[in-house]
């Protein structure tokens, strides 16, 4: 276990070093995050003001803002535009060879890359979280247990999300170029996972269907814990389901990989 941690923490470290190499890219990334939050704020203030609303589906303006801001943050943390693009390109061009010839797991190596690439955002988002807590007291992390539950649910969300990406990425062993599948998935997830429009605003029938899928655990579950929208006695069962989904998706990913690698033709030199 100790060797495993040392080995993969080295991958994480080199990703940080790489991320810090490009200061302009990092700065633009941070500006993009803040702009997204600002646009959401403007749209929803306009809706509340023009319709003269005090609540939407049980959300006050402040509660909705906190819920949406947090959803965007969690949604970004679990997204994988960069890592998945690089992995697909690697399979297509043969760059994956450099991982296959070393005593390292392809899954865990890229999981660490996935964390590493998003690390910069973790820092910025942590600052935004503190600002949210100060601006909207009582709307988020009402008790320390909510914060602890949120962190656990966030870890599950990141792992589950990466495992889903992993399955799509492995399809490149058969089809070569599968970035369009990842793009389509990302766009669908903006809605289905509740990243831009909270699932809580959807009709009950849709919420019930979503609860049968792993997607509910990507954004809605951690955000609902943080904002106290799931009663604490329901946490355990939801954690249980989310971990089961992680195992199913992880096993499926390994199955697809083991089949795909047999098809791999190690293109290029």
């Amino acid at each position: 276990m100790f060797i495993f941690i040392r080995k993969y923490s080295a991958v994480l470290k080199i990703n940080w070093i790489q991320a810090l190499e490009y200061r302009a890219n990092a700065l633009v990334g941070v500006i993009a995050i803040i702009s997204g939050l600002f646009i959401e704020y403007q749209i929803w203030s306009l809706i509340f003001k023009s319709q003269d609303l005090t609540h939407v589906n049980g959300f006050s303006f402040n509660e909705l803002m906190v819920f949406i801001f947090l959803s965007i943050i969690v949604g970004q943390l679990k997204s994988s535009w960069h890592t998945s693009g690089e992995m697909i390109e690697g399979i297509r061009t043969g760059d994956i060879n450099k991982f296959l010839i070393r005593p390292i797991s392809y899954f865990w190596y890229h999981f660490m890359m996935f964390i590493g690439v998003n690390s910069l955002y973790y820092t910025v988002y942590s600052i935004i979280l503190f600002i949210l807590i100060a601006l909207f007291p009582g709307a988020i992390f009402q008790a320390p247990i909510n914060f602890i539950g949120f962190i656990f649910a966030l870890i599950v969300s990141i792992f589950l999300s990466y495992s889903i990406y992993y399955i799509m990425i492995c399809l490149a062993f058969w089809f070569g170029e599968v970035r369009s599948i990842v793009v389509a998935y990302n766009l669908i997830m903006l809605v289905l996972a509740g990243q831009y429009i909270p699932i809580r605003l959807f009709p009950d029938s849709i919420i019930q269907i979503m609860e049968l899928t792993p997607f509910i655990y990507l954004v809605d579950f951690p955000v609902s814990i943080a904002t106290g929208r799931i009663p604490i006695d329901m946490w355990l069962i939801n954690f249980f389901y989310s971990v089961i989904w992680c195992l199913i998706i992880w096993c499926l990913g390994h199955f697809v990989y083991s089949r795909g690698i047999r098809k791999y033709e190690a293109y290029g030199s």
Partner: peptide, 10 residues
């Protein structure tokens, strides 16, 4: 010879 395992930017 035609592929590299080194990190390009560091």
């Amino acid at each position: 010879g035609q592929k590299n395992q080194l990190w390009w930017d560091i």
